[in-house]
């Protein structure tokens, strides 16, 4: 499991930035596939992974909570039974990665505050752990990710100081950082997430196969020709 934020490099390093939203089922699958690629990458110790914020639905009103199936049925105009059938494929592929998605209990919320928490966590070197914890909470555990108490608890699970998290979540700290991440994704041409950028040179869009991530890591590594930053 990827918890690394900053890894000390010897001579080379590859920086992988991943734009992702905590409610994005393909992002969690993509995360697992990247992790598996890193397990097979001979220079994994020289790879730095950074999770960047992206909101799939920034227009979702803050404070509005709705069961995922109900929200999808409303948005797409089908029945909840039809929506359930639509999600079968992603659930099956997630299960292949060891992720037991539970959309029956998932709640659609605005994820902006969850991303602000992740930026606080990054300041503590816990960005990867927090993103992982929040995705699990949203997609598997049915937690409500716009609730301050819930976010404080989930952050504390991975070591984010609870008092600091509460202060941030009750204010507006890290708003600019989240907005900047989203703006940068748009600048780089991301049209969806997950979106992976290696060394600001190579882009990989979507939950690609493990072999693709491995190939991308090797390509980026081979083209590192400057000393580690």
């Amino acid at each position: 499991m990827l918890g690394r934020e900053l890894l000390v490099s010897e001579e080379k390093s590859v920086r992988v930035e991943v734009w992702s939203d905590v409610v994005c089922p393909w992002c969690y699958i993509g995360k697992r596939r990247l992790e598996r690629a890193l397990e097979g990458f001979e220079h994994a110790g020289e790879v730095e992974v950074e999770w960047r914020s992206f909101q799939l639905d920034p227009s979702h009103p803050k404070g509005v909570r709705q069961p995922v199936y109900e929200a999808l049925a409303q948005k797409l105009g089908g029945s909840t039974a039809q929506v359930r059938a639509m999600t079968d494929r992603v659930k099956a592929l997630a299960a292949d990665e060891g992720l037991e998605y539970d959309f029956e209990h998932s709640i659609s919320v605005n994820t902006f505050d969850a991303h602000r928490l992740t930026h606080l966590a990054k300041a503590h070197g816990l960005g990867g752990e927090t993103h992982e914890r929040l995705m699990r909470a949203q997609l598997i555990e049915g937690e409500t990710l716009d609730d301050v108490d819930t976010l404080v608890r989930l952050g504390a699970d991975v070591g984010v100081p609870a008092d600091e998290a509460r202060r941030v979540l009750e204010g507006d700290d890290y708003t600019r950082e989240v907005e900047e991440d989203i703006r940068e994704a748009q600048m780089l041409g991301a049209t969806g997430v997950p979106f992976f950028v290696l060394d600001r040179t190579y882009g990989v869009s979507g939950a690609q196969p493990v072999e693709m991530f491995l190939s991308a890591l090797r390509t980026a590594y081979e083209h590192v020709d400057t000393p580690a930053r």
Binding site: C27, I29, G189, G192, Y202, G203, S205, G206, A207
Partner: peptide
């Protein structure tokens, strides 16, 4: 811009 690697149309949310 970025050199795009991998097949187009991989599963993603947009």
């Amino acid at each position: 811009g970025l050199v795009v690697l991998g097949a187009e149309g991989a599963e993603a949310c947009s």
